[in-house]
Write a protein that binds this DNA or RNA. Structure first.
Lengths: 209, 209
DNA sequence: GAATTAATTGAACGTTCGTTTTATTCTTTT
DNA sequence: AAAAGAATAAAACGAACGTTCAATTAATTC
């Protein structure tokens, strides 16, 4: 056999991406074989190479698009005019919503950095650094305005990101808490962590668990 | 050739453990081959099987000993008589010191859970849960005593552990901060996060970065 | 110093890996 | 209806994988 009835490059590529994210998130990049991925898509292994030149290139593409999507989501969600507390609240809410909605690709992007070549790794880390820089700027503004504790800003930023990204480790969409409730709880912790009082506009949405 | 002069089972086994922790932390369990590990130890691959029946058994042993060591370290460090804030301070300090000093095995224990069989995974998770339970108990005591914010305790415990374990991602022993300084900074963040004021006995040791 | 045990080598096993090549069929364009 | 292009299957490549086995030598015991 060769080309199958109804086969379509666009659909096949999308199916490869989705299957790859799910399989790699579950078993890890090294543990997933091209044959296993192809079987999940319903295609032969050789067909994958029409869309991605190598296995690593597939991984890199998934990660790059994840990071670009994260940055794009924040640029959409960022308030144009808000004080540091409002900015921080928007950042935390966007981060948690994005990560919960894309648990699998987040897992891939966080866990599989080791499997990238030097050049590809550098690119992904550049994107990550740019994103973290946004948080550091908010913390710096807040520290200067006197609404946040002005401890080591780089360390605080890392601690916050680590904490709010950790949500994907335990959160499952069908449990007792909704995404919004989780986001508000983490936001409250973040605000206390930075030494800020919750901003007024943040509080009326908010729902304690 | 066969047995080499000066060869010693005890020393070889220790060398295997150490090399395995370093290699797996750096490249990941799946990416490290038994031949590569053997080469690092300075031995043939077949010799590894004298000490560990399978590759996974080696991984499991490393993880189990790490988790047991963590629990043991906390049992040594735990204050016999202290209020919840003192307990929490001791917990954070011990956690950070232990993880910084054993960055590589921490990395292995956190990242390679996927490579364990069901039974082995269950055992490791049991150890982890037992350790996390210690923190939850401290938070519960503090909430009841009114010194901590009494939000969702399980979620707070996870957030704190995520945050203070994150130190191994960026901390390198030769940088501007000492382990003690890092621990105090994280402790301050943890205390604010829980809504507690720093306890008096914690403050005189403390050094802001 | 002979017998026994401990530690290791070197070669080999079958399997699976990522990837390439070639041929074949479907779809679209002319 | 023929030609061109896209999408896939099937088979094969060499390399690497975890693991086993028999042989061999060093250290220990008697």
């Amino acid at each position: 056999m060769a080309r199958t009835t109804g086969s379509d490059g666009g659909r096949t590529e999308a199916a490869i991406r989705e299957a790859a994210i799910n399989l790699i998130a579950r078993y890890g990049y090294e543990a997933v074989s091209m044959r296993q991925l192809a079987a999940e898509v319903g295609v032969q292994a050789a067909a994958l190479y029409r869309y991605f030149p190598t296995k690593e290139d597939l991984l890199f593409t998934l990660m790059r698009e994840h990071m670009e999507g994260l940055q794009a989501a924040w640029e959409m969600a960022r308030p144009t005019a808000a004080d540091p507390r409002g900015q921080l609240a928007a950042f935390v809410r966007n981060h948690i919503r994005f990560h919960v909605e894309r648990r699998h690709s987040t897992h891939v992007s966080n866990m599989e950095l080791r499997s990238l070549s030097r050049d590809n790794l550098t690119q992904i880390l550049r994107l990550r650094t740019a994103y973290e820089k946004e948080l550091r700027q908010i913390l710096r503004d807040g520290a200067e305005a006197g609404v946040f504790v002005s401890d080591d800003i780089g360390l605080t930023a890392i601690a916050i990101i680590q904490m709010i990204t950790g949500v994907i480790v335990w959160f499952r969409p069908d449990e007792r808490l909704s995404v919004e409730e989780v986001a508000e709880t983490y936001l409250a912790m973040t605000m206390r962590l930075t030494g800020a009082e919750m901003p007024r506009e943040a509080q009326h949405v908010h729902a304690h668990a």
